[in-house]
């Protein structure tokens, strides 16, 4: 009996020691319209030559969690396989009338609003399944929004490594310093998913993030 316990213990120790880092579940989180899908698309285009999801100016375009399996990123002869998980934007309010301003009909707006609320719940539920998360923020918007703080706080509480990306730095109003000042304890990188600006630095930071995955 004692020998059996010792043998199992030793096996567990050795298997943990030589365990390979398998596919990493990389989540994209953030408020609506920050550019999560645009960044996921940029990544997929760079690697696979195809998009992950559709993008739009209308908020809550992504209303379901979307995946892309087997995204292998190579850098300095090192390959890492990811499963990309693009999540709906997290918000504390959803008003169908906001969608009317974008030309949607009332029924379409109401349906979109309902799907958006369900998408937010789904995104929150997925938090537990992530190995690492990229929090995508709009660098032209106020970074001190409670949603941003809530998302990052939850990731920290779950000990999930975080990289904060300030997107849309191609726009005049962008203020990446403000994003960095809001989250001084985290790695913050400014990019433009639309133009591809600073994507090399993004990949560099992504590889650093992966090192933190346990």
């Amino acid at each position: 009996m004692v020998i059996k316990i010792l043998r199992n213990f030793a096996r567990r120790i050795f298997s943990n020691l030589f365990k390979k880092k398998g596919k990493i579940k990389l989540g994209f989180y953030g408020p609506p319209n920050a550019g999560k899908t645009s960044l996921a698309n940029r990544l997929c285009q760079d690697v696979l030559g195809e998009d992950l999801g559709t993008v739009s100016n209308v908020p809550h375009e992504t209303r379901n969690v979307q995946f892309k399996e087997k995204v292998v990123i190579e850098k300095n002869r090192k390959k890492i396989e990811f499963k990309l998980i693009d999540t709906p934007g997290i918000a504390t309010k959803v008003d169908f009338e906001d969608f009317l301003k974008f030309g949607l009909k009332k029924k379409e707006a109401q349906a979109r609003s309902k799907e958006a609320t369900q998408g937010i719940i789904e995104a929150i539920k997925w938090l537990d399944d992530m190995d690492a998360v990229i929090v995508v923020l709009d660098s032209t918007a106020n970074p001190y929004s409670q949603v941003n703080i809530t998302i990052i706080g939850n990731l920290v509480a779950r000990k999930i490594p975080v990289l904060i990306v300030g997107n849309k730095i191609d726009l005049k109003k962008a203020n990446i310093k403000k994003v960095q000042n809001a989250f001084p304890e985290y790695d913050v990188i400014g990019i433009s998913a639309k133009t591809g600006k600073n994507m090399d630095d993004f990949y560099e930071s992504l590889f650093k993030l992966v090192k933190k995955v346990k």
Partner: peptide, 18 residues
């Protein structure tokens, strides 16, 4: 609120909308 309470509050809110 704690971060997990905040997400629970958001989930609750989303359920009530509509």
């Amino acid at each position: 609120l704690r971060p997990d309470e905040e997400t629970r509050l958001i989930e609750n809110t989303m359920t009530l909308i509509g």
